[in-house]
Every structure is written in structure tokens, then in C-alpha cells.
Design a binder for these strands. Structure first.
Lengths: 238, 238
DNA sequence: CGGCGTTCCTGACGGAGCGTCAGCTAGGTG
DNA sequence: CACCTAGCTGACGCTCCGTCAGGAACGCCG
């Protein structure tokens, strides 16, 4: 509408080209670089978004509600985030940092004999625990990715791929040793195992609703992981 | 707003109590029992909904678009369905009929020896095939159930429970024969297996994107199913 | 074939959120 | 104290939702 006059200010494209990582996440809608107060408001909005995600379903999360909860107005929200998803994406980014550590549960320990069983339970428990601690955010990641939102789809991939890659490597090791059939595709194995973990973790309460104890679910998954990765039966006393 | 006058017409509650199965699905919004033309319109709306589900993402499916596609108006749509989900629910109901047959893949055949391997592949293949043929509808069922929509959640349960129950029975059989540990919870096993199948089927194209062949995915799942159900290693030549 | 009752359809409307401005407020600085 | 600019918001236009009153089409009967 109004012709944009930018007296002396840097060209927008320059700003976009310049600020790569540090400011990209923090830059406000109009290109300003926020100061102390602005960042505090942004953090408050993020915190309220996280809070409300715990109680409200993702789809019912309205910008107007988040803003009111944070003691500000909807227009302010849009200064810091293009939409609600973008705010959640920031929260999810922090979760993604932690998710990278899941791969260590697979890559770190030895998978030979009883140590393999320990690793299997560690992966199953660790994954379930991880998902539980970030339940609200992970639910949104799953839903949004499922709906075709590319931002969340990419994030989901970044979260789970390290784990899948780690599985692939371990399985490939066993395959090269002849413990697994030569025609087994380690990536397929990895993908199926990660799928199992993700879906079971996401539906944990569904399992409990049917009277299945979490302990049994986790142990069942540990057995499957052990057998599928190593090609051996799990130890008899588990 | 306007005081409701119902001159001589039957009380709404009576109607609701009376029409149980036959008319419940067909009754229009205002309580009328539709005639030939009405049902044709309803069918047209359903067909267009199914068509557009194939191309448009569930969340972008607008009542106004479906109505226009069907050559009618949004208000007409609301005569036959309270919302878009309700229309999809009708489509999903048909899918649910077919889903009941999945349990036969588990319950029917013997699980002893090589026959067990045949059963495992049949389940993995059959499930993937089922999901593929109803991809569009199943995607909505998963999403809507995940978002907390009770209608879809119940439908999802009705779809997958027979399969889980069948798994439970077979596993329990092996457990009683001493082929499986006594402390294994057959329901946990069944739940995990169904979760694996559902999630892998839903993310099939994700697998293919990473260069994993569907054949390898399915075979991997068949191995897991065989081992997890029977407690044995799969035959060497697969 | 004309009148009548019922089924069927739709234009038009109020309402809820969204996302965007122009313009105001207030904290910081010289 | 005056000024600047980061920060905030009231108010608006838009899109889509779901509803309702009332018109159109159909079928039946005399």
C-alpha cells in the first residue's frame, strides 16, 4: 500500500543475506534486531506456548489465547513469529538437540552377548523416556509432519535419522560378520525399529488404557530390538 | 432465537431414540428422512470428498470446495453432514469393514514351522497392501485420532483391535506351550507389532525416499513378526 | 392440469480467527 | 529535557464456518 521509504537503513536483502544463524531466529517481523525487552517478550510468548501445549490440543491453540496468556496482544505475537507453528518449531528445535543424544544409546555400547541386551533395554527405555519428557512437543511434530508441513517434516527427520543411522551401522556390522543374512537391508531394519519405537512411544497411553504395563511394552521392544539387530535370541533370564 | 414450534411433529428425542441403525446415518440435519434425490446428493458429496482427499491435504479440505465440486452449495453439505470429518468418517466406516478381515491373516493359518513364516509374510504384505489401497482415508484416521477426535479414535481402535486380539491369542498359545517366556505379556507383543505395522505403512513413502525398497521393508517386518510371535528364528533361506 | 404438501436447495448473514497496518507509548541516550 | 527508536496495540479487511428463512423442484391427488 504505502510506498516503503527506508532512509539510510540497510537494504532488506542485505540484512537477509548477512544474518545467517545468530539473528535469523531472533529477527522480528519487520527486520528490526530486538533488544533486551523484545527478547524478554519473545521468551514469554514461547513459555506460554509451551505451557498451553500441555493443556490445549495443538489445533485449538489460538494466537489470541497465547497472547492474552502472555499479557500482550496478538499483533505482538506476529512480530516474533509468523504463526503458531513457528513458535512451536522453536521449542521443538531445543528438543531436537537432545534427540541427537539418542543415537549414542545405540552407537556407544557393545552389542555382543549380554552387553547387547543391556544396550537394547537402554534404547527402549531411553526412547520412551525421551518421548515422555517432550510429549507435548513431539505430538505436534508428529501431527504437523503428518499433515505435510515441511518444516516439521524436516525437523522430524533430523531428530530420528541419527538413531536410524546408528542402527544401520550396528546391523551392518553383524551382517558383515555373517550373523545376519547377506540380503538383509540394514536400513530397512533401522527404519522399522525406529518406526516401532516412535509409534509405541506416541501411543503409550493407548497401551496403558488396555491394561498393558509400560514395563511389558518396553521389554517387548527391547527383545525385538535385540533379536532384530543381533540375529540372536535374547538371554533366557529376561 | 426463534421459539421452536413443532406442530404435530414427533418430539426430537423420540426420533433419536427410535431410529437406531438404518436411518441414523442417513437422517438429514433437520430430521427429515431423505428420499431418492437427497440420497443421490449425499452420495455425490461423499464421492467428491473421497476424490479430493486424494489430491488435497485433509486440513485444506474446505466444505465450500467439496460442495462446488459436487455442483451444489455449502449449505447443502451441512444438510447431510455436521462437518467434513463426519463425511470422511462415513468413508472410513467402509474401510473399517475391510479391516476386520486383517485378523484372519493371523488367526486363520497355522504358525508352526514354515507355515508360520508364510503367515508372517502374509500379514506384513496384507497390512501394507490394505493401507496402500486406503492411503488417503487412513491418513485422516491417523491424524484426526492423533488430534484427539474421539470419533476417529474409536474407529481406529475398531480397525486395529481385531488384529491385535488375533496376535494376542497366537502368542498366548506359544507361551502356554513354553515356546515363549512365561512372563511375556501377549497383549504387549500384539500392541507393539500392530504399532510397527501401522507406522511403517503410514510412512511407506518416507522409506522409499531413503532408497529402501518396499520389499526389504516388508521382509524385515515379516522376520520381526515371525520371531516375536513364535520365539524362533526365521527359516534360513529367507 | 392445477393445487398442495413435502423434499431439497441456496443466498445471505453473523461470528470467529487470522494477519497487517498506522500510529501510539515508553525506555534509553545525549 | 528533548529526541529517537524499539516495542506495542487498536482496528481493520479477509476468509471460512455453520445457520436460517425462504424459494425451487418434485410427486401426488382430485
Amino acid at each position: 500500500m504505502a510506498d516503503r521509504v527506508e532512509p539510510g537503513g540497510p537494504d532488506e536483502n542485505e540484512v537477509l543475506a548477512d544474518d545467517e544463524l545468530t539473528d535469523a531466529e531472533l529477527r522480528a517481523a519487520d527486520g528490526r534486531v530486538p533488544g533486551r525487552r523484545g527478547r524478554a517478550t519473545r521468551q514469554r510468548l514461547l513459555a506460554c506456548t509451551a505451557d498451553m501445549l500441555g493443556t490445549t490440543s495443538f489445533r485449538e491453540l489460538r494466537v489470541v489465547d497465547i497472547a492474552r496468556e502472555a499479557g500482550t496482544s496478538p499483533a505482538t505475537f506476529y512480530q516474533y513469529f509468523p504463526d503458531v507453528e513457528a513458535a512451536i518449531l522453536v521449542l521443538a528445535e531445543e528438543v531436537a538437540q537432545e534427540a541427537a543424544g539418542l543415537a549414542d544409546l545405540v552407537r556407544g555400547p557393545s552389542w555382543k552377548g549380554r552387553q547387547g541386551w543391556a544396550a537394547s533395554t537402554a534404547v527402549a527405555d531411553g526412547f520412551m523416556d525421551f518421548w515422555e519428557r517432550h510429549r507435548a512437543v513431539m505430538r505436534v511434530v508428529e501431527l504437523a509432519a503428518g499433515e505435510g508441513d515441511q518444516r516439521f517434516h524436516r525437523l522430524r527427520t533430523r531428530m530420528l535419522n541419527p538413531l536410524a543411522t546408528a542402527f544401520t551401522e550396528v546391523v551392518d556390522g553383524f551382517r558383515k560378520e555373517g550373523r545376519q543374512p547377506a540380503d538383509l537391508d540394514p536400513m530397512a531394519v533401522a527404519g522399522v525399529l525406529v518406526s516401532m519405537l516412535a509409534h509405541v512411544a506416541a501411543h503409550r497411553y493407548g497401551f496403558e488404557f488396555w491394561g498393558i504395563r509400560s514395563e511389558d511394552t518396553t521389554r517387548t521392544m527391547a527383545r525385538i530390538i535385540f533379536t532384530t539387530v543381533t540375529g540372536q535370541k535374547p538371554p533366557a533370564d529376561v
